[in-house]
Design a protein around this nucleic acid. Structure first.
Lengths: 205, 205
DNA sequence: TGTATCTTTGACCAATTGGTTAAACTAATT
DNA sequence: AATTAGTTTAACCAATTGGTCAAAGATACA
């Protein structure tokens, strides 16, 4: 049960629903389970949120905003491209660490219902920061700091790939790693410490 | 409906179930929908496969074997590390192209039920190829061909990340890309052509 | 042709699921 | 204390879902 006395009922429902939806997904989640988890009667869910669909949409947006932080693509305003890359991984990895279960949930639900991400993008607008980064990258390319053959859009997506996949693939990596005596948690820590350098090595002139 | 006359009933069920399960996941899939898709009576599903759980397990294994090809980590026996990296991406990207819907399905189902991957790993044993690659990598490191600070396990997982994420993130990338006028399909083609170089740049001395 | 076996179907079932409702409870206002 | 509005509950409901079963159709074999 979720913080029985501390939060008001609506908040308790939100926390419980977030837990259950993140764990089971929309199709696998049960209203009764959410009610039990929140320590309330199932009717209260409908009293506060009308239907499973509406409750889910609300929770999806709340959880997504938490997990994305201030922006989909937190890129600092100051510094060189290399510094921004390092800072990006720091922030991104922190958010992932705090929202381990979110990536799989998010990708799966958006896959089932692409409308969700359209609604989300209205609230979190990434294109501004994105465009700024691209402009700056092209400038530093001209200045000879980064390789000429690197496309900033591909670079950004490679960075996201490297950052997120260890969390997306957790259930698989965990199992495969035991067969070769590698510890998943230790891997995560070392991965976090090495990806920025991996990317910078690849693009610097 | 799946190849109404060409295949026998069992095969038709398998193809239909694969389609529906891959699209909706275990929890979201409906036996009736699978039956309709296969053009048969729902009872036949139980006649051939007893229960939804058993049908799913069968389909999961079939689909996984198809998608993984000969091995989880197809790494060539001959050639330098750089050649193996290039070859890996070729094979891996081909498999992904042919099984676009598989990655999200796979990650989600394994997340819901980790037992699945344990059963799968009994059939597809990746650790042999993996160990060979690691040994060779350390040799080429000593020979000065690759950077001293690169860990082969992390390298392999980075390679898988870069290869798979554009497919895992398809629903998200697609929507985000339209907001900055990038075409997802074109992105995929260019990505495929550039990742091997991205990785090699990062590790070569 | 008869019969035994395998396949296929429609009708049906019990359990689960999201959702409703009316009544009971609570707390503030007068 | 009485009234009112908001909150919570238990009982209930209709639809859906996975699954069963007996009978009807095929198919092969004697």
């Amino acid at each position: 049960m979720v913080n029985e006395e501390e939060l008001n009922v609506e908040q308790r429902i939100i926390e419980a629903a977030a837990d259950v939806f993140e764990e089971k997904g929309f199709a696998g989640a049960r209203m009764q389970q959410i009610a039990d988890h929140a320590g309330i009667n199932k009717s209260l869910l409908h009293y506060y949120f009308r239907s499973k669909e509406l409750l889910f949409e609300k929770i999806f947006m709340i959880v997504a905003k938490r997990a994305f932080g201030k922006s989909v693509l937190t890129l600092e305003k100051e510094g060189t491209v290399f510094e921004k890359i390092e800072k990006f991984f720091e922030i991104h990895q922190d958010l992932l660490w705090k929202n381990r279960n979110f990536p799989i949930f998010f990708i799966n639900e958006v896959n089932q219902n692409p409308e969700l991400i359209r609604k989300l993008l209205e609230k979190i607008e990434p294109s501004e920061q994105l465009k700024n980064f691209i402009v700056q990258f092209e400038e530093e390319k001209k200045a000879g700091l980064v390789r000429k053959d690197v496309d900033p859009v591909h670079l950004l997506i490679n960075m996201i790939s490297l950052s997120i996949f260890p969390y997306l693939g957790k259930p698989i990596l965990k199992e495969v790693m035991v067969t070769v005596d590698v510890n998943y948690e230790e891997f995560l820590v070392k991965h976090r410490a090495s990806i920025a350098q991996f990317v910078i090595n690849s693009i610097k002139n």
